[in-house]
Write a protein that binds this DNA or RNA. Structure first.
Length: 197
DNA sequence: CAGTGTCA
DNA sequence: CACG
């Protein structure tokens, strides 16, 4: 787990937010639900790139289209591909950018990212907007955990031993950033999904 | 079990 | 930590 504080300056963050606004017009935020129970998540999400992560009553999976519009996900902006190239230390393109929007009060329980085929690729996380309290532990559920504050513009790389660590968001600290006029936090996670040829 | 509710 |  490697944190790069303020890897994106304010101008880069604003440009990214603008790109995300365009993307969300094409691929609206949706509220995922838990497999089997159908209980809703508190975050809303969308995706960019050839594949997107979705959760519904049938389970977790990656798919090439938006679950509500049926249309392909919008392309990943070049700035994200550049960030991957710079921080991922992995010689293939990312295939999915999961966009999670947290309003104040939203959280994400401890989980592992394990729906990808290639755990050799890291997961790269980019934080925008309000500061979040990020919790992470080891590769076993129930192990010791620590917390870390993630600020707007931070890039976190979960690779190597940290690739399968349990992690989640305890809470979002309202009013800690002026980046998003509507408040809240956006997290982007870039992932390689399929095993490269 | 990427969810919530409850209790020490 | 148990649940549905």
């Amino acid at each position: 787990m490697t944190q790069h504080p303020a890897a994106l300056d304010r101008a880069a963050q604003e440009a990214l937010v603008e790109a995300l606004r365009s993307a969300v017009r094409l691929a609206p935020l949706f509220t995922p639900v838990m497999p089997r129970t159908g209980r809703p998540f508190s975050v809303r999400m969308t995706n960019l790139g050839p594949l997107g992560w979705v959760s519904d009553r049938a389970g977790y999976r990656y798919q090439p289209t938006h679950p509500e519009t049926g249309k392909p996900w919008p392309a990943m902006p070049q700035v994200l591909l550049d960030l991957w190239q710079r921080h991922a230390a992995y010689p293939h393109l990312p295939e999915a950018c999961l966009v999670n929007f947290y309003n104040q009060g939203a959280k994400m329980g401890l989980h592992q990212d394990r729906d990808e085929e290639d755990f050799a690729a890291p997961v790269l996380s980019i934080s925008l907007g309000d500061t979040a309290v990020f919790r992470f532990g080891g590769a076993e559920r129930g192990g010791k955990t620590q917390t870390l504050k993630l600020h707007s513009g931070d890039v976190l790389v979960m690779g190597g031993e940290a690739r399968l660590c349990f992690h989640g968001i305890d809470r979002v600290l309202g009013g800690t950033s002026t980046l998003l006029k509507e408040g809240g936090r956006i997290n982007l996670t870039l992932r390689r999904v399929t095993r490269p040829n």
